[in-house]
Simulated scan of single mutants.
Amino acid sequence: MDQSNNVWMASYGNNAVVVYPNQTNTPISYADANTEPFGMAITSDGYAWVTYTGSDTVSKLRYSSGVVSKLFTVTLPTGSNPKGVAVDSLGNAWVAAGATSTVYAINSSGTIVGTYTGQGINGPWGISLDANQNVWVANFGTTSASARYSVVQLCGATSNCPTGVAMGAAITPSAGYTLPSAGSQVLLSSGQPLYGTGAPASCLPLMRLTSVNADMAGNVWAANNWKPSGLNDILLNPGGDGMVIFVGVAAPTKAPSLGPAQSP
């Protein structure tokens, strides 16, 4: 929702961005050559950043007087498949390019001002900011290998970071924040193994993540959306095993959010 109570949606299935003006039930639809809109974030002045995972693009849109229009489009490298997007207090859009394990920072005019890889970034999907304007990345992974999935915190553009850590550099350890199992296989709430009795055991309680957000106490919530084995799950993935909470690792962040993240 933007500051004028307009509800924005990324309609991935029909390649459109849809706005419901002032929460009414009469939608305004916008479509152009960009395909598969996926992520969306609202700026402090009411514009919308939209990622298009099908066309490797990011657009900045606005809604005014019943019309959705485009300010510009930023083209990312072919095969980037951008997904999540978040906006900081300076107007920069932070974009998770899952297929290339890259996070981009794009300024309010559409110029890429940062390209960040490594540091535990592995197939990023979800992305958000805490009240310190630092960036949290949820890793989905890019391979079916038994990689240890993680969440990664990057220093944001406001330099509200530990001494010597520059914009885009990781604040978290080299592999991000992981969730060790101590060798025990993951069990569902019923007590059954993650993949069922007799199936291969999984010792990866932190799975393929699609979303990460900080709450008003500074806890980081990560969505275990996909089970970790690509071999078992890529065709008929039945979902992950709930939520994982990293306690007190982020700046406390106001909820619900409207525009860039704020302190409570």
Rank of each mutant, 00 (worst) to 15 (best):
P200T: 08
P193K: 00
N14L: 13
A86N: 07
T75H: 06
Y12F: 10
T158V: 06
A222E: 05
G39Q: 02
G126K: 07
I28S: 13
S184G: 09
P260V: 03
S263F: 04
A93G: 10
S189T: 11
Y20V: 02
G183N: 12
G176R: 02
G198V: 05
A222L: 02
L236Y: 13
L71R: 13
P252D: 05
N81F: 02
T26L: 07
I112H: 11
S11G: 13
G98V: 10
L204I: 08
S65K: 11
P21T: 10
T24C: 04
N122C: 10
V50C: 09
P205H: 12
L188S: 02
P256D: 12
T100E: 01
N92F: 09
D2F: 06
G259V: 03
D45M: 13
V152K: 02
L90S: 15
A31V: 10
R208W: 00
Y20F: 12
V103I: 09
D233P: 05
A223P: 01
G164L: 04
A131L: 02
G191S: 09
Q119R: 04
G91H: 04
P264E: 09
N132K: 05
Y63S: 08
G218Y: 13
D215R: 04
D215T: 05
G39M: 04
F38K: 15
L235R: 13
N107L: 06
Q3E: 07
Y195I: 02
S89P: 05
G230E: 03
M243D: 13
S263P: 03
A93L: 07
V152M: 08
A250I: 02
Y12A: 08
Y30D: 15
P180T: 12
V19W: 00
G230I: 00
S128L: 01
N134F: 03
N81A: 04
T57I: 02
S55E: 00
P256A: 13
N81S: 03
